[in-house]
């Protein structure tokens, strides 16, 4: 706990939280500013049988693939960059802190902020839905599925970003990885499920709980259908992420600066 507080102390003047709020704010503004002009959504608001809540959930779900890799890359980079800039690895290790705690603290802070982003999104969905008066009952399971699924994918994304931000002195490398991830995340809804599941960041598209029926490879109708989140690829990704977490941490522990 001491090291975690110290890590937060080191973030003084780094404006990490402000950066986090700006990026998340832009995303939420981008997503929710469209609903007011969306006639389909406005028609669904007063219809108890229409999937208005699901329509709200797919807003952030569709755009998280673009914003979350960038958000994770920026936060991880800002938190790890100060160690590279000040050449503080040796300082920390000679002063009672080992690599394991460094990894733990950095990872915990980035993960906590990303989890906070997911909760803020869920809260915004509920608040916005209530403010426009959606009459449909809130599908709590779907919303929780969105939160859990996003958290599982984000865990892997954070693991990758923290590792590369810690071992690469040049922060352009992890930032580029984040950008590539964002690109994949953004176009992932256009990719077939098998392909997007292999591409880590593409899995955000699995959280689209509303769509058109394209079974058998063809569009079956123009109406919207509610889809259950397919957790199988997410669980596989999460397990791979856990392995990556252990492997990356061990690599970092042995890394010589």
């Amino acid at each position: 706990m001491k090291y975690l507080w110290l890590e937060l102390y080191k973030l003084k003047h780094r404006k990490v939280f402000l950066t986090f709020l700006v990026i998340l704010g832009v995303e939420l503004l981008f997503v929710f500013s469209n609903y007011g002009n969306n006639k389909n959504f406005l028609n669904m608001v007063s219809d108890p049988a229409a999937p208005a809540w699901e329509d709200l959930i797919i807003g952030p779900a569709a755009i998280n693939g673009l914003f979350f890799p960038i958000l994770a890359a920026v936060i991880a980079s800002r938190i790890c960059d100060m160690e590279h800039k000040g050449n503080t690895w040796k300082l920390l290790e000679c002063n009672n802190q080992n690599r394991k705690t460094i990894w733990f603290c950095k990872f915990t802070i980035v993960s906590t902020l990303m989890m906070l982003a997911i909760f803020i999104q869920a809260f915004t969905i509920i608040a916005y839905g209530n403010s426009v008066g959606i009459v449909q009952t809130l599908p709590v399971r779907t919303l929780l599925g969105f939160v859990l699924g996003t958290a599982m994918i984000t865990f892997v994304v954070v693991t990758i970003q923290v590792f590369f931000s810690l071992v690469c002195t040049n922060q352009l490398v992890p930032m580029s990885i984040g950008m590539v991830g964002a690109l994949i995340g953004f176009i992932s809804t256009l990719l077939p499920p098998g392909i997007r599941n292999i591409l880590i960041w593409g899995n955000y598209a699995e959280l689209m709980v509303l769509g058109q029926d394209t079974s058998s490879g063809n569009l079956q109708s123009s109406g919207l259908v509610v889809r259950n989140i397919n957790f199988i690829p997410l669980v596989i990704l999460f397990v791979v992420g856990l392995v990556a977490y252990v492997v990356f941490r061990k690599r970092f522990e042995k890394y010589e600066y």
Binding site: K2, W5, L6, Y9, K10, K12, H13, R14, M82, K85, G86, N87, T88, W89, K90, L91, L92, C94, N95, N96, Q97
Partner: peptide, 28 residues
Amino acid sequence: SVGSLIESPSYYGHLTGGENMEIIRRLL
């Protein structure tokens, strides 16, 4: 019980000297 300064000095440039010393104080 061992103090060290290896190669170039290590520091957090965005913090003040006092804040850097505070990090060492808390670490130890």
